[in-house]
Nucleic acid binder design. Structure first.
Lengths: 222, 222
DNA sequence: CAGTATCCGATGCGATACTG
DNA sequence: CAGTATCGCATCGGATACTG
């Protein structure tokens, strides 16, 4: 951890918080992740060795709190008061990024895995029709994993997968990663994408009409 | 420049803005520096090669603007609109640092060179007695440069040096780097430091009594 | 689930000297 | 003042495999 050797509190905060990956960890905790592999879901390129090291560092600085659950081997990470206070910083960074990067550059960074993970965790289960649902996404242009499924079981179980479970979907989105990302990020709305043929949706009426309600967008502009 | 490969605007902003030294450059520009070697004064450990590279990067991203003055070889750096918008981020980082780092840790990072540079640029010339002034600082515990001078020439010329100009000072601060830093950062006030014998001041009355007016503290909590 | 263990390559970075 | 030019070390970091 190289240091600026400056007494400026901003410089000191930067050394710690802005070290590579640290803000990503904090973002994940702010978004509700609380254990090791969940954090990795939101940061797939984050190697476990390095994540482990960074978590220790943040714990040592009392920015996060590590807690073993009394039963089993599970570990729970949470934000301390100073950790929660990083929200303002992260939020301002997100605002700046959303304002000053070209939409095309942001969209260009999208990929199915992260998009689907983010869609899944932003799905508003209370707004879905309250029955078992299979929500399918077809990205015909994708080679590795063109098909994804979000599995909903009331009241709030939501799972994500890219392996066919062999059941018919209740709703199918036929679209591109780019178009779905635009919807998710709030750059385009649902109607626009349908009308421009960037998205096609098939399925039961009640779930289709409620799409804008349950398909969560990132309010949190990180 | 390694990337997170995430479409999250916060992650993208972080890659660029939070890369080592970039926020320091932006801080300096926010504080009024506008050329190469002035920036280095506020970041003495920043190698010129690396500074040059970073300036180019920030210029390429249109966060700063580089301009050759029409006469001579001087170059002027300024913040663009998006650059100015980084103020919120830097400010939040500074707030966080000032709130969550122990005062002792912040003070422990202080050193004469940066402290004096920051004092000099925060000196409020309009509040000084309007005559030529030599303001001397003695840090008896410092080995390399125990004595510093701020030279004021009305109305607004303020220079800093650590080489004796051979003239008597109008005011002399006998103190430690730590104590002066505490005053500068607003952790302690002038009266307290005098009473605890952490600071002694000799000189003309008018300049002494107006110390709290002209000895600038860092309002800007970076 | 929650991490460790390795391993090696890239390059970031600091220090210093030098130029126009 | 405004940068270039070197240069080699250190370490950061990514990928992958493996364990309790």
């Amino acid at each position: 951890m190289s240091t600026y050797k400056q007494f400026c509190p901003m410089a000191m905060a930067t050394e710690l918080l802005c070290q590579r990956w640290n803000l990503i960890i904090l973002r994940e905790l702010h978004l509700g992740s609380c254990n090791f592999n969940t954090i990795r879901k939101g940061a797939p390129r984050f190697s476990p060795a390095l994540l482990s090291q960074r978590l220790k560092q943040l714990e040592n600085h009392k920015i996060i709190f590590r807690e073993k659950e009394t039963v089993g081997t599970k570990v729970n990470y949470s934000l301390t008061t100073s950790g929660k206070a990083t929200f303002d910083i992260i939020s301002k960074l997100g605002d700046w990024g959303k304002l000053w990067f070209d939409e095309s550059v942001i969209i260009g960074n999208s990929e199915p895995q992260l998009l689907m993970w983010d869609l899944q965790r932003n799905t508003i289960s209370s707004k879905l029709p309250q029955r078992n649902l299979i929500i399918e996404f077809n990205f015909s242009q994708e080679k590795q994993y063109p098909n994804w499924w979000i599995i909903f079981k009331p009241p709030s179980s939501i799972d994500l997968g890219h392996i066919d479970v062999g059941q018919d979907a209740d709703i199918i989105f036929k679209t591109s990663v780019e178009a779905l990302t635009k919807l998710h990020m709030g750059f385009n709305n649902f109607e626009t994408l349908i009308q421009s043929n960037d998205m096609e949706v098939l399925g039961a009426d009640d779930i289709i009409t409620s799409i804008p309600d349950w398909l969560g967008t990132t309010h949190f502009s990180v």
